[in-house]
């Protein structure tokens, strides 16, 4: 009780407030003093590499594992005090499938609804609604065994919504799905967030996913949340745009550009020059002028805003993709 009344972290209207939430396993600290707030209706993304502590963090919020220290309030209930109340107001979609494949889609949802104590009429009506929402109404009476990976994931999302949760946790919602199916799942997540007014907390290690879906993103690595903001602010926080120039005499051009005061940094590989530039749109003409002066022929110039990939690199000093590769390599090594 002392913590809850401590000035500055009482949850008045937030969907989720965490206060120095920490989880130690034997020798590792999976989650280290994470304090953050999520407002109702947000789609909040936790972006980080595998093993960063994302899953442990949401497992604590969903009362599946108890924190080592710290606390959190979910929908007004403390996770360490009122487990069942928290469970009733949240929906959870696990990273690995958690369906009974000997039952039909409808039976899986019905099972869930009864476990959450829903009355018959509510149950029937809600079942139709959520099946509709994820586009599975026609497949409802087929055994889950015969569902595709994407259908299973959609059914799990529908199930997570069954009991009218205020907060829906999605742990890597599109892991292992093909790009087209992933895009569809994104659509469903956007729809449910809009139509059901449900707060969504999702974890992902896909940049595009965080960028496409989230109103705010927390970048997490080694159990610590490094920064939290909207995708736009995060991208602007890097402070420069990226200009890619393809030209002849690349090395000469690089030397010329390096002398310009508005260039922050420039690198070259083969005939491609990559420069970091503030307000790049206004500097493109200057770059072309430089090229003419050294006699280089410009084939193309592209200007792009920094991506979340660049943001992640900026904050953690490593690329997400490399990390994913490492893990695959380890797996290959570990299980020949």
């Amino acid at each position: 009780m002392i913590i809850v009344h401590h000035a500055g972290w009482h949850a008045f209207m937030e969907a989720i407030v965490t206060h120095e939430l920490t989880k130690h396993y034997a020798a590792v600290t999976a989650v280290n003093k994470v304090s953050l707030r999520v407002m109702p209706g947000e789609v909040f993304g936790l972006l980080g590499p595998n093993g960063a502590g994302k899953t442990t963090f949401i497992k604590m919020l969903a009362t599946l594992t108890t924190p080592s220290s710290g606390d959190a309030v979910v929908c007004g209930h403390r996770i360490t005090q009122d487990r069942d109340a928290v469970r009733r107001c949240i929906g959870m979609v696990f990273q690995d499938p958690a369906l009974d494949d000997r039952l039909t889609g409808r039976e899986n949802l019905d099972f869930h609804a009864r476990m959450y104590g829903m009355k018959r009429d509510d149950r029937m009506k809600r079942l139709t609604d959520v099946l509709e929402l994820v586009g599975l109404a026609e497949k409802a009476d087929v055994l889950v065994k015969q569902y595709s990976g994407g259908m299973k994931r959609r059914l799990e999302i529908a199930r997570g919504l069954m009991h009218f949760p205020k907060v829906l946790f999605l742990d890597e919602p599109t892991l292992g799905l093909d790009p087209q199916t992933r895009y569809h799942i994104w659509e469903y997540i956007r729809q449910l967030n809009a139509r059901e007014a449900v707060t969504v907390i999702l974890t992902t290690h896909y940049m595009e996913e965080a960028d496409a879906l989230c109103s705010r993103i927390g970048i997490i690595d080694y159990g610590t949340v490094i920064t939290v903001d909207t995708p736009a602010v995060l991208k602007n926080s890097i402070g420069h745009d990226i200009v890619t120039i393809e030209a002849t005499h690349a090395e000469l051009l690089r030397a010329a550009l390096e002398k310009e005061p508005w260039i922050q940094s420039v690198t070259v590989s083969d005939s491609t020059i990559v420069a970091q530039v503030r307000e790049a749109e206004q500097k493109v003409a200057r770059a072309v002028f430089c090229a003419q002066e050294v006699g280089a022929q410009v084939r193309s110039i592209t200007v792009r805003k920094p991506s979340l990939e660049d943001v992640f690199l900026h904050y953690t000093g490593k690329r997400l993709r490399d990390d994913a590769l490492d893990i695959r390599e380890q797996r290959r090594g570990g299980h020949p």
Partner: peptide
């Protein structure tokens, strides 16, 4: 079996 196929989690998270 339920643990193997993940369904045990679905049972365990319910407020039951």
């Amino acid at each position: 079996w339920d643990r193997q196929f993940g369904f045990l989690k679905e049972i365990m998270v319910a407020p039951v």
